[in-house]
Computed example of a mutant assay.
Amino acid sequence: MERYLWGVDLGGTKIEGIVINAKTDEILIRERVPTEASQGYDHILSQIKKLIDGLVEKTGLKPEAIGFSTPGTLDPGLQTMKNCNTTCMNGQPMKKDLVALLGVKIEMANDANCFALAEATMGVVPEKYPDAQVVFGVIMGTGVGGGVVVNGKIIGGKHGIGGEWGHNVLGDDQTPCYCGKKGCNENIFSGPALERFYASVSGEKRGLKEIVERYRANTDEHATATLQRLFKSFGKAIHYIINVLDPDVVVLGGGVSNIEEIYTEGVKEIENFIFNKRKVETVFLKPKLGDSAGVFGAAELVR
Score class of each variant (00 low, 15 high):
Q92Y: 03
E31A: 10
A116C: 01
G103E: 08
C114S: 05
V33F: 06
L98H: 03
C84R: 09
R30F: 12
L55Y: 02
K50V: 00
S46E: 10
Q47F: 04
Q39C: 11
T70W: 01
D42V: 07
A112T: 06
A120W: 02
M89N: 01
N90M: 06
K105S: 13
Y4M: 11
T35W: 06
V56G: 00
G7L: 05
N21A: 14
I48T: 00
I27H: 09
M94N: 00
L28W: 12
G77I: 12
G12V: 15
D97Y: 05
E64I: 03
V8E: 06
G11W: 13
N110H: 14
F115W: 02
P71K: 05
Q92D: 04
T121C: 08
I44P: 04
C88H: 03
A22F: 09
N113W: 01
S46V: 04
A37H: 04
G40T: 14
G67C: 02
L117D: 01
F115T: 03
R32Q: 14
A37N: 07
K96R: 09
I27V: 15
K95C: 02
M122T: 02
M94R: 02
T73S: 09
C84L: 12
R32G: 02
P93W: 00
G77R: 15
L55T: 09
G7C: 05
E64G: 12
L45H: 04
T59V: 13
T70H: 04
G77L: 15
I52P: 00
Q92V: 01
T86Q: 10
Y41D: 08
S69E: 01
G60C: 11
H43S: 13
T70E: 02
M81V: 11
E119D: 03
Q92T: 03
T73A: 10
E26G: 12
L10E: 12
A100N: 14
L51R: 04
C88S: 12
E119K: 00
G40E: 14
G40A: 13
T87M: 09
T121L: 03
K58F: 01
L10M: 13
A112L: 05
G91V: 02
D75I: 08
A100P: 08
M94D: 01
V33Y: 05
L101D: 09
E36H: 09
D42Y: 08
K23W: 11
G60N: 09
L61K: 14
F68T: 01
V33A: 03
P63E: 04
V19P: 06
N83W: 12
T121Y: 01
C84V: 08
G103N: 10
A109V: 06
A120V: 00
Q92P: 01
L74R: 00
P76D: 15
A120K: 00
M81W: 07
I15Q: 08
A109I: 06
G40Q: 15
T13E: 10
